[in-house]
Amino acid sequence: MTKDFPLYRLHPGQNGIVTRLSAEGLTRRRLLDLGLVVGTVVESIRKSPLGDPIAYGIRGAVIALRKEESSQVFVRAKNS
C-alpha cells in the first residue's frame, strides 16, 4: 500500500481515498460531517485562480477547502 499524504497535495483530476484525519475538536467534527470519513473517495477538482482554496468532489457535492483544513485530511492515491 502506498503512503498517505495531505489532501491538498492531490492533483486536480486525481482521486484519493481518505485514510485518516489529523484534525481535532470542532474542525474534525465539521470535516466528518462533510462526509470525509475513512474510506471516502475524494476527487480534487480544481484550484481557485489564486491557488487556494481547492474544490473537491465529496459524496456528490463540490466543496472548497482551504489549505488549513485540507492539510489535516490524509489520503492515498486511488487508481481509477
Binding site: D33, I58, R59, G60, A61
Partner: peptide
C-alpha cells in the same frame, strides 16, 4: 435528487 447520498446523511 441530484446529490442524494449527501442529503441522506
Amino acid at each position: 435528487a441530484t446529490c442524494l447520498e449527501r442529503n441522506l446523511n
